[in-house]
Amino acid sequence: MSNEITYFHGANYGVVTESIALHQPGLILFDGRYYPAELFKPLQIELKVGTYVLVLGTRGCRLVVEKDKAIHGHKDNEE
């Protein structure tokens, strides 16, 4: 699989439907469909089900995402 990212133009958002973590791809609901997704940066975090993500582009057959800090979709110790 290629490590190169093909970036989307503009802001695209999705919601995690199967948790995503470092070296553990998951699933997101994006544009009305479910897609495999992975983290944009190799961080020791877990994006839990219900977390809103910013969809940056694709790497191979997976969408590349990061947590969207502007939208609070999941209550994971954030108040």
Rank of each mutant, 00 (worst) to 15 (best):
M1L: 10
M1S: 09
M1P: 00
I5A: 12
Y7T: 11
G10I: 10
A11C: 09
Y13E: 08
G14R: 02
G14Y: 02
G14N: 01
T17P: 01
E18L: 15
S19A: 08
A21D: 12
L22Y: 14
L22T: 05
H23V: 01
Q24K: 08
P25R: 07
P25K: 14
P25H: 12
L27P: 05
I28E: 07
L29D: 10
F30R: 04
F30I: 04
D31A: 11
G32M: 01
G32L: 02
Y34S: 07
Y34V: 11
Y35M: 09
Y35P: 02
P36R: 15
L39S: 04
P42V: 06
I45S: 01
E46Y: 06
E46K: 11
L47V: 10
K48I: 00
K48F: 08
G50N: 00
T51L: 02
L54C: 11
L54M: 13
V55K: 11
L56G: 01
G57T: 09
G57A: 13
G57I: 06
T58G: 05
T58M: 09
T58C: 04
T58H: 05
R59E: 03
G60I: 10
G60N: 12
G60H: 00
C61P: 02
C61W: 04
R62H: 10
L63Q: 03
V64P: 01
V64T: 01
V65Q: 04
E66V: 12
K69Y: 07
K69P: 02
A70Q: 12
G73H: 08
K75M: 15
N77L: 11
E78H: 13
E78S: 13
E79L: 09
